[in-house]
């Protein structure tokens, strides 16, 4: 485990609602630079909503989001993204009318803040996602689910983020692809990118993450290392479908 370093992303008392339905009731999550953290919870627990509220895609109606020391609560998503926070949605939201290359082009932007790090290039991305290299010109609608999942991550990396919100990367994928996803997350970590991922699959989570939060009914119920979580039958039975 890497030594805890500076906090890159932090939510305090984050609350959010869809219309009249309050979904998040004060979520506290911390992500430190270079760390991979899993946000675990059942269907409908509020994982995706937490990530969307951090990104400004769902307006927060309480609490704060701080990214790299800036209070970004209420900011528009594009501004948050430009600060260096990447977002990979659960539904992938690939631009199916565009080619693979064009999808990556939409995501391309320069890194914010501290230069020095080598920016993501197509070549480096294709080294992590070799499948994509072979289908640069293909329309994204003609890709398999696994390929789309890789594309959606690669597209976000093109924006040179310092931290990435990754919503259920393993969902609905074949086991070999899940393994590739785990490799991709570890590759990001190796690049120094912090990752906050939502997950239901404890095996996947413990394979890639340092720490885990468990969310249920819109509030954090447990916080600890993934090892501890694996050993804690009580929490797993109460909040995670095993």
């Amino acid at each position: 485990m890497s030594a805890p370093s500076t906090t890159i992303l932090e939510t305090r008392g984050l609350a959010a609602a869809y219309g009249h339905a309050q979904v998040l009731f004060g979520v506290d999550v911390t992500l430190r630079a270079g760390e991979v953290v899993a946000l675990m919870g059942r269907n409908g627990a509020g994982k995706s909503t937490t990530l969307k509220a951090i990104m400004g895609l769902v307006p927060a109606n309480g609490g704060t989001v701080t990214f790299e020391g800036q209070n970004v609560t209420g900011w528009q998503p594009f501004r948050i993204s430009r600060l260096g926070l990447g977002y990979v949605p659960e539904e992938r939201r690939i631009f199916t009318d565009l080619t693979v290359y064009e999808n990556l082009e939409v995501g391309r932007k320069a890194a914010a803040g501290a230069p020095g790090k080598e920016p993501w290039s197509l070549d480096r991305l294709f080294a992590i996602f070799p499948n994509l290299a072979e289908m640069k010109g293909r329309r994204a609608s003609a890709m398999s689910g696994g390929e789309q999942q890789m594309l959606t991550i690669a597209r976000t990396l093109m924006g040179n983020p310092h931290a990435v919100l990754l919503d259920e990367p393993s969902e609905g994928l074949a086991p070999v692809i899940v393994e590739q996803m785990a490799d991709a997350v570890l590759a990001m970590k190796a690049q120094g990118i912090a990752v906050l991922l939502s997950e239901q699959n404890l095996y996947f989570a413990s394979a890639v993450s340092d720490r885990a939060y468990v969310i249920e009914k819109g509030a954090i119920r447990y916080e600890g290392t993934t090892e501890d979580l694996e050993d804690n039958d009580e929490v797993r039975e109460a909040y995670l479908s095993v």
């Binding site: 895609l57 594009f78 009318d97 064009e102 932007k109």
Partner: peptide, 21 residues
């Protein structure tokens, strides 16, 4: 043009990727 086509399909996602709509 690529951004226009992407936004035609899903402009929220285009914003989340850092494009100033």
């Amino acid at each position: 043009g690529v951004l226009i086509r992407a936004a035609t399909q899903d402009r929220e996602m285009v914003g989340a990727l850092g494009v100033n709509q």
